[in-house]
Design a protein around this nucleic acid. Sequence first.
DNA 1: TAGCTATATATCACTAAGATATATACAATG
DNA 2: CATTGTATATATCTTAGTGATATATAGCTA
Lengths: 186, 186
Amino acid sequence: MRETKSKYAVLGMLSIAPMSGYDIKKRVEESISNFWTESYGQIYPILKSLVAEKLVTKTVERGAGKPDRHVYALTDQGREELQRWLAEGVTPKVERNELLLKLFFGEEVSFDINVGHIEGFRELQRGLLEKYKAIEKEIKAEYADNSNLPYWLLTVSYGQHVSRALLDWCDEALLKLNKTAKSRKK
Amino acid sequence: MRETKSKYAVLGMLSIAPMSGYDIKKRVEESISNFWTESYGQIYPILKSLVAEKLVTKTVERGAGKPDRHVYALTDQGREELQRWLAEGVTPKVERNELLLKLFFGEEVSFDINVGHIEGFRELQRGLLEKYKAIEKEIKAEYADNSNLPYWLLTVSYGQHVSRALLDWCDEALLKLNKTAKSRKK
DNA sequence: TAGCTATATATCACTAAGATATATACAATG
DNA sequence: CATTGTATATATCTTAGTGATATATAGCTA
C-alpha cells in the first residue's frame, strides 16, 4: 500500500471515532461526499493493511443476529501517520471534466445539444448551491461548540464559491453561444 | 470496452485530424490538459479496439529510422459514434479534492499547516488564472476564423471563473482562520 | 562521446470506482 | 400473515484510469 489517499481518508474518519468499515462508508457519505468518495473495495483491504501496520486496532463485537461488527480504532502511531500526511503539501491534480470535453468538440453536433448540456449543468449547480446553504445552516447549529466547525465550514464555503462562479459561467456561456449562432445565420 | 470516457476523447482527437497514439497524447496535453488527461496505458489499447469496432482505420507509415508511425483515421461510423456520445447527457461525478480532505481534518494539526495549504493553493490558482488569460489571447489570435473557437473559448472561460472564485475563497478562508485563532487565544 | 530531448509503441503495477454476493433484522405494505 | 424494502455488515470482482518503465532510434549539445 503506497501513498493512497484512501488510506488517509480512512485514518481521518477513525480519528473522529472508532468504527467499522460499514460506518466509515456511511460517515464519508454524510460528511465529505461533496468532495470525497470511498468504496468498500478500498475500505476493507485498507483496514486489513492498517492493522498489519499497527496504525489501527481491531475489536470484534458479536452482533445479536446481525453480522459481527469489526470495530477499528486509531492507535497513537496511526494518529501520527495521519498528522504526518496532513502536514504534507497538497499535490495538484487535473480533474477530468466531461462537460468541457463535450463542449470542446461542440462543433461536431448541433447548437441545441450544446445549449442543453449547459442548461443541465446550470440546474445541477443551482441544486448544489442550495444544498451547500442548507448544510452551512445545519452544521452551524449542530456543531456550534465543536472545534472542528471552522474547518468544516471552509469546505462548505469552497463549494459555494465554485457553484456561484459556475452559475455565472453558464449564463455567460449561453449568451455567447446565442450571439455566435445569430452572427452565423446572417 | 464499455462507456469509457477515454474512448471518446480519442475519437474526438481523431475528428480533428488523423494521427498516431503518440500524437494523441501530445495533442491532448496541448489543447485540453486543463480539464482532461490521457495516458498511453489507455490510448494504445483503445486504438486497437476502435479498429476492431471499425470506428477508425489504421495505416502504417514506414519511419525513416524512427519507429513506424501507426496513423489512425476516423471512419464515418466513428464520427457517428462520437456524435452520439456528444449528444448524450453529462453524468455528474464527485471529484476527490485532497485540499478539502486535509482541511476537513485540520484540527488534527497546527494552524500554520492549514494556512500553508491555503496559501499554496492560492499561488496555484493565481498561476492558473494567468495561464488561462494567456491561452485566451493566443487562441483568439491563432484561430480567429476557426469555427471551433467559440467552443474552445468556453472551456477557457470556465477555468477563469473557477480560478477567480477560488482566489476569493482563499482570501476569505485565511481571514476566517485568523479570526478563529485570535478568539481562541483570548 | 556522453547525455539529453524528441519520436514512437507497448505493457505492467497499482489506485480507484462500481457492482454484486451473502446474510440477517426489522418495519411497512398489501 | 407473507412479501417487499431498507438498514446493517463484510467481502470480492471487474473495469477504468494513472504513472512508471521498457525498448529503440535520431539529432542536438556540452
